[in-house]
Design a protein around this nucleic acid. Structure first.
Length: 246
DNA sequence: AATACACTCAACCGCGTTGAG
DNA sequence: GCTCAACGCGGTTGAGTGTAT
């Protein structure tokens, strides 16, 4: 199906909020479905990309740590440009982020070291050369444990500033500084790490209380197939959504 | 202060894979 | 087994930003 007037280019704040809302509602799998029901004039592909690379609350932002850098080098040496595979070993980092990082930082570095005849990669920028695995050619490099409690977690590094600002301005959340802001936002959306992948059927989310029982689903003309009604306007029927984008 | 150049990263594109019908 | 739509991945692009001259 060819989508007419599909939007491209940078995402707006409202689109982001809307996408977060619908992913929260339906999980992060059915991207074409989400693209359709959300009313966003985006392809499912575009929605997925935006979520995976930017909106996902599990993302970690900020500079790569020396350990992460080292791990990327090790894994790239082992797997080549299998970015998504490498990304799975670095919690909170996306394939796109690692790919970009590699291209801008590490590729040059690795090439230079190769020229100099170094037999294995190791991060020169890593001051942590005394790490227990230093010099090891072991293929199983333990990733630095990256948790939401580390100092440079996504929440703490000011990701999604727009949501923060918007929350301050439009939701009325009282946020004093940068800490906890995203927690507050996602908490507000009842959207915490760890349950964002839940299929909507199993989400014990009060968000469903908002839905009228018979407004989401309808039968097709033959009456033999249920389908989800377009919900572009439904987003606006939630009080807090209107508050957010008003 | 203005300009050029370098860098970063969000987003798009094309293609291969997967799974439902 | 075949077809087609959706998904996921890797490569690439280009706008925005930073830095050097």
């Amino acid at each position: 199906m060819v989508k007419e007037d599909t939007k491209k280019g940078p995402w707006t704040e409202q689109e982001d909020v809307q996408l977060v809302f619908y992913v929260k509602l339906f999980g992060d799998r059915r991207w074409d479905f989400i693209a359709n029901v959300s009313g966003l004039k985006r392809t499912g592909k575009s929605c997925r990309l935006r979520w995976v690379n930017y909106l996902n609350p599990g993302l970690k932002r900020g500079k790569m740590t020396p350990n992460e850098e080292k791990l990327v080098l090790e894994l790239h040496k082992k797997w080549g440009n299998r970015w998504s595979r490498i990304a799975r070993k670095l919690p909170g980092r996306t394939d796109n982020e690692i790919k970009n990082y590699w291209r801008t930082h590490l590729r040059k570095e690795a090439q230079e070291k190769k020229k100099k005849g170094m037999s294995s990669y190791s991060s020169s920028s890593s001051s942590n050369s005394s790490s227990s695995s230093s010099g090891s050619k072991s293929p199983t490099v333990e990733p630095t444990p990256v948790t939401e409690n580390t100092e440079c977690s996504f929440h703490d590094t000011g990701g999604l500033d727009f949501l923060v600002d918007m929350s301050k301005k439009k939701i009325g959340l009282e946020i004093e500084d940068g800490s906890n802001t995203m927690d507050e936002i996602f908490s507000y959306l009842d959207f915490k790490e760890g349950n964002c992948n839940l299929p909507y059927q199993t989400m014990a989310s009060p968000i469903w209380d908002y839905f009228p029982n018979d407004s989401l689903w309808a039968m097709d003309e033959e009456g033999n197939k249920m389908f989800m009604q377009p919900m572009g306007d439904l987003f606006h029927s939630f009080p807090f959504c209107n508050n957010m984008i008003a």
